Lab assay of single mutants.
Amino acid sequence: ISTPTHWSKLDPKTMKVNDLRKELESRALSSKGLKSQLIARLTKQLKVEE
C-alpha cells in the first residue's frame, strides 16, 4: 500500500483511472466503479482532508 499523495497536489478530474485507483486504495477507499464515480469519491475525500 502506497502513501496517499497530499490533497493539494491532486486534481482528480485530470487524473488517469489507474492513478485514481491508486490514490483511493492508499486511502482505504473502494477503487471499483466508473471513472466518474472514482473522481467523485476521491474529490469528496480530498475535501475532508483539506
Results as ranks from 00 to 15, higher is better:
12 P>W: 04
44 K>P: 02
8 S>L: 04
5 T>E: 10
16 K>G: 11
18 N>C: 14
46 L>G: 01
5 T>F: 01
33 G>D: 03
20 L>N: 00
5 T>W: 03
31 S>W: 10
41 R>E: 06
16 K>I: 09
10 L>D: 02
38 L>M: 11
27 R>Q: 01
45 Q>K: 13
1 I>L: 05
43 T>N: 12
13 K>E: 07
37 Q>N: 07
19 D>A: 13
49 E>R: 00
5 T>L: 08
40 A>H: 15
40 A>W: 11
8 S>N: 10
26 S>P: 03
50 E>T: 03
15 M>W: 00
12 P>A: 08
36 S>M: 07
42 L>D: 03
45 Q>H: 05
20 L>T: 02
39 I>H: 05
18 N>W: 12
50 E>W: 07
31 S>A: 13
17 V>W: 10
7 W>H: 14
2 S>Q: 11
41 R>V: 04
8 S>T: 09
34 L>H: 12
21 R>Q: 06
26 S>D: 14
15 M>T: 02
33 G>V: 00
26 S>C: 15
36 S>Y: 09
12 P>E: 02
21 R>H: 07
49 E>V: 00
11 D>S: 14
19 D>W: 09
12 P>N: 00
46 L>H: 01
40 A>D: 11
50 E>L: 01
47 K>E: 06
31 S>E: 09
22 K>L: 09
12 P>S: 02
3 T>S: 09
28 A>G: 15
23 E>Q: 06
43 T>V: 11
35 K>H: 14
20 L>W: 01
45 Q>F: 06
17 V>Q: 10
17 V>K: 13
16 K>F: 07
23 E>K: 00
4 P>A: 15
41 R>S: 05
34 L>V: 07
27 R>A: 02
4 P>V: 12
20 L>H: 02
29 L>V: 04
10 L>G: 03
25 E>D: 03
18 N>R: 15
36 S>E: 08
23 E>D: 00
13 K>T: 09
48 V>W: 07
4 P>K: 15
11 D>G: 05
40 A>F: 14
46 L>E: 01
34 L>E: 09
13 K>Q: 09
20 L>Q: 03
13 K>I: 11
19 D>V: 07
19 D>F: 12
20 L>P: 00
9 K>A: 12
30 S>M: 11
6 H>L: 14
10 L>W: 00
45 Q>P: 01
5 T>G: 06
19 D>H: 14
6 H>I: 13
13 K>L: 06
45 Q>N: 08
47 K>S: 10
38 L>G: 03
48 V>E: 12
21 R>A: 07
11 D>E: 14
3 T>A: 07
4 P>C: 15
20 L>I: 15
48 V>A: 09
16 K>H: 14
42 L>W: 00
1 I>K: 06
38 L>A: 03
26 S>K: 15
38 L>S: 03
8 S>I: 04
45 Q>I: 07
40 A>R: 13
8 S>C: 13
50 E>S: 07
33 G>M: 00
18 N>F: 11
14 T>C: 10
33 G>W: 00
24 L>P: 01
24 L>Y: 00
43 T>H: 10
25 E>T: 07
22 K>H: 13
3 T>G: 10
47 K>I: 07
46 L>V: 06
5 T>H: 06
22 K>F: 08
40 A>N: 11
29 L>S: 04
20 L>R: 00
3 T>L: 12
45 Q>E: 09
3 T>H: 05
35 K>M: 06
18 N>T: 15
8 S>P: 03
27 R>M: 03
9 K>E: 11
25 E>S: 03
32 K>T: 11
48 V>K: 13
17 V>E: 15
37 Q>H: 04
23 E>M: 00
49 E>D: 04
14 T>I: 13
9 K>S: 08
40 A>M: 14
43 T>D: 10
7 W>V: 08
11 D>V: 12
34 L>R: 14
25 E>K: 13
33 G>C: 00
42 L>K: 02
7 W>M: 09
31 S>Q: 15
31 S>R: 11
44 K>T: 09
49 E>Y: 00
17 V>T: 11
41 R>Y: 04
47 K>D: 07
40 A>I: 07
12 P>L: 07
28 A>F: 13
29 L>F: 09
12 P>Y: 02
26 S>M: 14
36 S>D: 10
1 I>T: 08
15 M>G: 00
22 K>D: 06
21 R>I: 13
49 E>A: 01
39 I>A: 08
49 E>T: 01
22 K>Y: 11
16 K>A: 06
13 K>R: 06
23 E>Y: 01
26 S>R: 15
5 T>R: 10
11 D>M: 13
3 T>R: 10
11 D>F: 09
1 I>F: 15
6 H>S: 11
36 S>K: 09
23 E>S: 03
19 D>R: 10
14 T>W: 04
14 T>Y: 11
30 S>T: 12
24 L>S: 01
24 L>R: 01
46 L>D: 02
43 T>E: 09
7 W>F: 12
34 L>G: 08
5 T>K: 09
5 T>A: 13
28 A>N: 15
28 A>R: 15
12 P>I: 05
19 D>K: 05
39 I>L: 07
4 P>L: 11
29 L>G: 01
11 D>K: 15
30 S>V: 12
7 W>S: 10
28 A>D: 15
6 H>Q: 11
24 L>M: 02
28 A>T: 15
29 L>A: 00
29 L>Q: 07
44 K>W: 05
14 T>A: 12
35 K>P: 05
8 S>Y: 07
46 L>A: 03
13 K>V: 12
20 L>D: 02
45 Q>S: 08
27 R>V: 02
13 K>C: 05
40 A>C: 11
26 S>W: 14
32 K>Y: 08
14 T>F: 07
8 S>G: 12
30 S>F: 04
39 I>M: 10
28 A>I: 14
34 L>I: 11
26 S>I: 13
1 I>D: 02
7 W>D: 07
12 P>K: 01
9 K>M: 10
8 S>E: 13
10 L>H: 02
42 L>G: 03
44 K>Y: 06
35 K>Q: 05
43 T>F: 11
23 E>T: 02
4 P>N: 09
29 L>Y: 04
32 K>V: 06
47 K>G: 09
35 K>R: 06
48 V>Q: 11
10 L>K: 03
5 T>D: 02
17 V>D: 09
34 L>K: 15
10 L>S: 03
12 P>R: 01
33 G>L: 00
44 K>G: 06
36 S>I: 10
11 D>W: 09
8 S>M: 06
33 G>K: 00
19 D>T: 12
46 L>I: 08
23 E>N: 03
19 D>N: 14
21 R>Y: 06
50 E>H: 13
31 S>G: 13
20 L>A: 03
5 T>Y: 04
32 K>N: 08
34 L>W: 08
3 T>Y: 15
1 I>W: 04
38 L>H: 03
45 Q>Y: 07
34 L>C: 10
6 H>P: 14
17 V>G: 08
39 I>V: 13
14 T>M: 13
30 S>D: 13
15 M>P: 01
27 R>L: 01
37 Q>V: 13
43 T>I: 11
6 H>A: 13
45 Q>D: 03
35 K>F: 04
46 L>R: 03
9 K>R: 13
